[in-house]
């Protein structure tokens, strides 16, 4: 039901965004120079990835074998969009935008993480495909993981230095501290899935004798990244507790509270399966409950923000919510016209 609702949401947003480009092309092009909104281009493939994963997990029971073909098609589209965001947005940052170290936040990670999210989708899909295709999907998923994780982990270190040198970002960017958990948790989930599927995917190939050590290497990487993620959960939790000692204004950036912790929950459960650990499973349940409750709050507040900006509300001409209200860094030309 929720997954179906999400397909509806994604379709609605795709139509709205296509019409936005069609009718307000000038304004749509301007986000290329917007230091925050352009990062959100990475959320398009990542939203699509959750739908593709749903077709693998829930699809066969709901729509039959066609679900896997649909998931495969969506995954290919996801890969294309993720590569475009991962290459295109950094190029825009270098050439069209002006950034400073003090203004850096976890938002910089969004376009880069899309590729490893696509890798996770590929690794979830791979065992459902014909044996002959599995090796190629496995290789592509590893490449996508590597297009994202090493650079994102480096950028997370820069983010830590930025917080040491320039203190925490303003309250309007409060949720962005959770974005660093995204690449760590996704990297861990990717490697955990890899360790589970590699032996099946490489069976009957020349690499079959190497599949078992590769599974072990994947598990080791997954577990180490997961431990690192645990530290970030603690740090981001403490930072958030500090922010919420004063009012934190709502904006669409609050969605950063949901996705990274959700992926970390999935990674915790994947490792609970592999390690056969009841403790990890229980921790996953606690995290899962936190994620669902957080989602309820953020979803309700998002609906509230739509209501207030609709003509029925009192703020009909409000400009687009940049998600992370970073107006100070936005060139005047990039402010959506009213």
């Amino acid at each position: 039901m929720l997954w179906g609702l999400n397909i509806g949401l994604f379709a609605l947003f795709s139509v709205l965004y296509a019409l936005h480009w069609l009718l307000h092309g000038e304004q749509a092009r301007r986000i290329a120079s917007h230091t925050v909104l352009s990062m959100a281009l990475g959320t398009i493939p990542m939203g699509l990835a959750t739908i593709a994963n749903g077709f693998v997990l829930f699809g066969p029971a709901l729509v039959g074998p066609a679900a896997i073909s649909i998931a495969h098609g969506l995954w290919l589209l996801d890969c294309g969009l993720a590569i475009a965001a991962g290459l295109g947005v950094p190029l825009l940052m270098f050439t069209r935008q002006s950034h400073s170290p003090a203004q850096m936040t976890g938002v910089w990670l969004l376009p880069l993480v899309a590729a490893e999210v696509a890798a996770v989708s590929g690794l979830q899909l791979v065992t459902h495909l014909p044996q002959a295709e599995q090796g190629g999907v496995l290789l592509a998923s590893l490449a996508l993981w590597a297009c994202s994780v090493p650079l994102a982990l480096g950028l997370v270190v820069v983010l830590v230095v930025r917080m040491i040198v320039h203190s925490l970002p303003p309250a309007s960017m409060a949720p962005s501290c959770w974005l660093a958990l995204g690449p760590i948790a996704t990297g861990a989930l990717g490697m955990a899935l890899f360790s589970q599927v590699v032996q099946g995917a490489l069976a009957n190939t020349v690499l079959a004798p190497l599949a078992q050590p590769m599974a072990g290497a994947g598990l080791l990487l997954a577990t180490l990244l997961w431990g690192y993620g645990l530290w970030w959960v603690g740090l981001a939790g403490l930072i958030s507790a500090r922010y919420f000692t004063a009012p934190v204004p709502f904006n669409l950036g609050w969605w950063a509270y949901v996705f990274p912790l959700g992926v970390f929950t999935l990674a915790t459960w994947a490792l609970a399966d592999i390690w056969d650990s009841g403790l990890l499973w229980g921790l996953g349940v606690v995290l899962g409950i936190v994620v669902v409750l957080t989602w309820m709050i953020v979803a309700l507040r998002s609906i509230g923000s739509v209501w207030r900006s609709s003509p029925a509300g009192n703020d009909a001409d409000a400009p687009a919510d940049p998600g992370f209200d970073d107006h100070s860094s936005v060139p005047a030309s990039a402010v959506p016209s009213q």
Partner: peptide, 11 residues
């Protein structure tokens, strides 16, 4: 689209 990421992962 961040809302579809969050809602998707919750599903």
């Amino acid at each position: 689209f961040a809302a579809t990421m969050g809602t998707g992962v919750v599903a």
